[in-house]
Amino acid sequence: MDITPYPKLFLANDLNEALRALRELADSAIPLAGATWVMRAPLRCETADRTLIDLSRIEALRTINIDQQEAVIGALATHEQIANALNGYNDLAALAQAAGHSANPAIRRMATIGGNICTAEFAAADLVPALLALDARLEIEGLDGSRTQTMAAFLEARATRAHTDLVTRLIIPRTQRTSTHARLTLRKAGDYPVANLSVSIALGAGGKISAATVAVGAVEAVAKRWTGFEEAIIGHAPSPEKMQMIAKTCLEEFDGRDAMDAPGWYRLRVLTGLVANAFSTLQETTLGRAM
């Protein structure tokens, strides 16, 4: 007989309620954000009878605020909300595009940014490389207070992280850079990507790249920065052809993931094409206007 005071789905009214429930129930509970991953547990043959701590009533987690200094995105903001709210900001375009093209329209309407980055088993998340490329920090709250962390540090510890604290906000510094996101799906759309790429660059004198942050997802089990490529493109004009050529020399940083949708070699092989796509998008849209 079930003696827990919590129903199998607990609608937390505020963050404290949620955190208390997570601590009390420990391993027998899991936070529920957009539900698109958790509700598919039966398909993954996961049979654990876990209590869902539903965060959707916590209004504070849904807000998106953008000012001159930073963009602050609540962890419960959906892909659709993010794509709409960030539309038109050149520096944040990578995240807007990643959120606006992931999966399919219905999933974008439900899936949240918090869920996207917290799901350790999901290698093909679109928002993770975008947040890496935009140098986002996470705000994490527990019963003992809040802290912030870089995306890289968060990802490093993600697989073993306990769910007793919660990612509450993503904080993205505003910059003069331009950014974009490119993804390759096996069909035209509607798939998770076999490889994705987010690029954020600043242009210096003569239109040459003066700073760059590039992150790659889906190629390996966890998205990561492409540091060799970031360094190699400094000082070059951002032409798609040139960028693709440089990318070809920087692939040894990756160990392509063999999975059902594509072999590892394929993910690496298409990555340079994604680089060309990303830089031609930059050229056509934001850079074109800026230059």
Partner: peptide, 22 residues
Amino acid sequence: CGACMVHVDGAPMASCLLPVGS
């Protein structure tokens, strides 16, 4: 697949992924 689409507060949603408790 979209075959379970319903409108929740006006927005089309995949009802297979919505726990009723939410």
